[in-house]
Design a protein around this nucleic acid. Structure first.
Lengths: 152, 152
DNA sequence: ATTCTTCCCTACATAATCGGTAGGAAAACT
DNA sequence: AGTTTTCCTACCGATTATGTAGGGAAGAAT
């Protein structure tokens, strides 16, 4: 269960755009230095985000990137799906495509529940929530518990 | 966010052992055919499980594998941690090791909340729960929602 | 029109991980 | 002794992850 560098970088890049608001397009280079992301690597990610219609671009002198929609309509799950595919997969397949036999039969509803609980976080949090540091109350509550910060 | 084949296989193998109860050790070959897992690949996984003290083994004629503890004390999270390392990681690091700047600062509590919600499922469900098809009520409730079964 | 900037595209590189195989050595049971 | 089964080491091909390099195409500014 890992969040890839691509996904992490993608979210951070979009947060820079969200924070910029309507101040005209932001250059890839500017995002890269602001967030410490390798510039050429970021370019590839921005291409994915453009193809996934999360971002629009403009070339030339005063070009750059801008969010394709309002920051409060783009969720973190949207971003991860665009750059990394399905949110949760088991052995490369999405949970509903699995089938188990014998004592493992109840594994399927377990993976479904796991995915549902992941969605509860990532589908509900928008770029605007993170950029303005106003996380939904469920997320806020979970992150408040000191237990949640300890490694097992 | 993927569950690897190793983790899936490991859980299924342990479920076979959980279902067997005290009927003496079960052979790797028998688990492999019961769950359709490549036998030599499974051997490697069982070695990890033994080193992680989730399983004990016996060699020779009537040898095989047995759970190292009662099935209701081993959680799914225990299994995944043994065969795949940390439950949730971001760019290869565990959430508390991360640090973000500027508009990305609230990403850290977000990943923490995500991990907490994953733990809520995987830390609470034991091998016995799955093997006897008696999932905890939280899990059961989540898996009941038809929405949880749809792909986006 | 020319020049400059910036995105855009293709290709390469390298390392790690994933999923799986092969062959035999060591131990335990019959 | 002989059989069975785990245990150990090594390997293997394919894919994925994380970048890098170089230049072409489009647009803006002058």
């Amino acid at each position: 269960m890992r969040i890839s560098a691509r996904a992490d970088y993608a979210v951070r890049a979009l947060l820079e755009l969200a924070a910029a608001g309507d101040e005209g397009p932001i250059k890839a280079e500017s995002i890269a230095t602001a967030q410490g992301i390798p510039h050429k690597f970021l370019e590839g990610i921005l291409t994915d985000l453009r193809r996934g219609r999360l971002v629009v671009s403009r070339r030339g002198g005063s070009g750059g990137y801008r969010l394709a929609a309002s920051a409060d309509t783009i969720t973190i799950a949207d971003v991860i799906r665009v750059v990394d595919g399905p949110l949760v997969s088991v052995r490369g397949a999405r949970p509903p495509e699995l089938s188990y036999t014998g004592p493992a039969q109840a594994l399927l509803p377990l993976w479904i529940a796991l995915r549902a609980n992941v969605r509860k976080i990532l589908d509900e949090v928008t770029l605007a929530d993170v950029a303005t540091n106003r996380l939904p109350s469920l997320v806020h509550t979970l992150a408040e518990d000191p237990e949640a910060w300890t490694n097992p």
